[in-house]
């Protein structure tokens, strides 16, 4: 059983569970929408300012939702010690990491994509550089959140105060990735007269490579004795 095949099995399992508990996904979506709304109330109602900050609001909403969804992703594993069951099957811990992290990334990307029309309406933005570029940028950001998020969600799920601990552990680590994702998304929305998008996208790719590499290498140490 090679690592990729195992990862696929675990990814499929997680997707199946998400489907069967899709009521929870709806709740997550409404939570993100509420967050998007609240940001506009928290700032001034100046529409040009809202438009400028739209990308930031979108990513913050996704970030907050990510903590909930990644926490849940590991709650189902600790509920009946199912993660131990996977380990003992045997499944390579790296397969478990890849499967769960990709699953989290897909979920976050889907959430971000669903939020886009709401962002367009609430903050009066347009997709200046086109939808495909936006989808790609959202994907890179989702991957960059999921890679460190998955490993730290695993750590937090076994510690006390797990709900508080995950954002405490994760948010400082995500600053560079989040910054790049927001900047890149803002450029895709507003337009890129000085051709900076490539640089930000490149940064995002570098972050992804580093985070995924670290996560892949270190996850076995986290879940194995």
């Amino acid at each position: 059983m090679n690592i990729l095949r195992g990862a696929w099995v675990i990814l499929a399992k997680d997707m199946l569970i998400e489907w069967r508990t899709r009521a929870r996904l709806n709740a997550l979506l409404f939570f993100s929408l509420a967050t998007l709304f609240l940001f506009s109330f928290a700032g001034s109602s100046d529409t040009s300012l809202l438009r400028q900050n739209a990308a930031g609001y979108l990513w913050l909403a996704v970030l907050f939702a990510s903590v909930l969804s990644m926490g849940e992703s590991f709650r189902i594993e600790s509920e009946n010690s199912a993660l131990d069951g996977l380990r003992l099957a045997p499944a390579d811990p790296r397969s478990i990491y890849l499967g769960k992290a990709w699953g989290n990334a897909i979920l976050l990307w889907t959430l971000a994509v669903v939020l886009v029309p709401f962002m367009i309406v609430l903050y009066d933005v347009s997709l200046t550089m086109g939808l495909p570029r936006l989808l790609g940028t959202l994907a890179l950001g989702a991957l960059a959140i999921s890679a460190p998020g998955t490993i730290h969600a695993s750590i937090a799920s076994n510690a006390r105060a797990r709900d508080v601990l995950l954002p405490v552990l994760l948010f400082p680590l995500l600053v560079p990735a989040l910054l790049s994702a927001v900047r890149a998304t803002a450029l895709v929305i507003e337009g890129d007269p000085m051709d900076q998008l490539t640089s930000w996208v490149r940064l995002l790719i570098v972050f992804n490579v580093i985070y995924w590499g670290l996560g892949f290498a270190l996850f076995p140490r986290v879940i194995e004795d």
Binding site: K13, L16, I17, R20, T21, I76, E79, N80, S81, A82, D84, G85, L86, L88
Partner: peptide, 10 residues
């Protein structure tokens, strides 16, 4: 073991 390694929603 005491834990049954099951996924509740499957």
């Amino acid at each position: 073991s005491h834990a049954n390694y099951l996924y509740e929603d499957l």
